[in-house]
Each structure stands twice: as structure tokens, then as C-alpha cells.
Simulated scan of single mutants.
Amino acid sequence: MKPHIKNVAARARAATHALAPVLKSRLPLRTKLGVYKTYVRPILTYAAPAWFALASETNKKILRAQQSLALRRLTNAPRYVRNSTLERDLRIEALDHFIIRLTRNMFARADASAHPHIRSIAPWHSRPPDRRAFPRDLLPSDLE
């Protein structure tokens, strides 16, 4: 997963850098946050339900850092302001919680689908021959 995470982080960093004039402007904070949610966060979370559970804690930290850097840039917050304070004040979910919510919603939609081929994308009972766990099984239960 390391090459993938590095690529995602580099693309998010490039998007944040390209949006720097907008993020540093005098636009309302709500507009800047919308720009972040529209352009940067989708880069960090694209197809995350498929790979996030398989990423190591170190790789997840790289993604969290990219979100924190983008939020700092749009708020012009100094280094001593905690990331959790930024997330709380901006009313934005931590990246882990957002991805886990996306994953749970994706599996719930797949399970509730009227189409059998979509329901069978992530089955509960059948396992691969090597007994590997599915991403659904790897979701942390402590973030419910």
C-alpha cells in the first residue's frame, strides 16, 4: 500500500498547492472549506473503502497529515493549534472517521441493493481460498 499512499498524498499536496491562492484569499471560511471538500478530500478518499483497512498506521498518518496541512492552509492556523481543534472548529470529521463512514455506507448500499450481482460484491460468508479477510472484516470496531 505504501506506493499508493505516497501517490495519493503527492496528488493531494499538489491540489492543495494549486489551490493556494484560493485558500489564502479573503473568501469566507465556509467557501474555502467547500473548496477543500470538493477538490482535496476526494483525492485522499478515492476508493478508500477498498484499501483503507489494508493500509498500515504509518500510511494512514501520511493521509491524516495531508488533511491537516490543507486545513491549516485554509484557516491560516499557526503550528501550535492542534489538528483536533481545527477539525472541531471547522466541524469536519477526522479523515479516519470519514473514510469509515464511507465504507459502512458503501457496504450498506451493496447489501440493500435489488441487484444480486451488487449484493455479491462483498459477501459476508464466502472467503477466498487463502482465508484472507475482506475489507469489511478489517474495519476497526472502536470507531463506531
Rank of each mutant, 00 (worst) to 15 (best):
T75P: 03
Y46V: 03
S84M: 10
A15G: 02
L74V: 02
E57T: 14
S56E: 11
H17V: 01
L74D: 01
R132S: 15
S113V: 10
R109N: 11
T75K: 02
A18N: 13
A47G: 12
A20D: 06
L33F: 02
Q66K: 15
W124E: 12
I118K: 06
M106E: 05
V22Y: 10
L27R: 05
R72L: 12
D111Y: 11
P78D: 06
A110F: 10
R79N: 13
A112L: 11
H115M: 08
R101W: 02
P49W: 02
R109A: 14
R88K: 14
H17L: 08
V40T: 07
D137W: 03
N105K: 10
P116G: 02
A10Y: 03
L90F: 04
I43Q: 01
N76K: 14
V35F: 01
L102R: 11
T58K: 15
L143P: 01
A53R: 10
W124Y: 05
A18W: 07
K24V: 02
A48F: 02
I92Q: 03
L86A: 04
V22T: 15
N83S: 12
L54W: 06
A47R: 07
H97T: 13
V81I: 15
R30K: 14
L44A: 00
I100C: 07
A47V: 03
T75H: 04
L102D: 04
H125C: 07
R26G: 14
L95P: 01
L86M: 08
R30P: 00
A10R: 12
E144T: 09
L27D: 00
K2Y: 06
L139A: 01
V22N: 04
A48W: 01
D130F: 02
H97R: 11
D130N: 15
H115K: 09
E87M: 05
D111G: 09
D111F: 08
A122I: 13
K37Y: 00
P21C: 07
A9L: 06
R131C: 11
M106D: 03
Y80Q: 13
I62T: 15
P49A: 09
R41H: 08
R101A: 15
Y36V: 00
A77I: 00
T38G: 12
A48V: 04
Y36M: 01
T85D: 04
A10I: 05
D130K: 08
P42M: 01
K24H: 15
M106Q: 04
P78G: 05
A65W: 03
S84C: 12
F134Q: 08
N83K: 07
Q67T: 02
R101V: 03
N59E: 14
L27N: 00
A77C: 00
A10N: 12
Y80A: 11
T58R: 15
R132T: 13
L69Q: 15
R79S: 12
R104L: 05
S84T: 15
K24Y: 14
L139Y: 01
P129F: 12
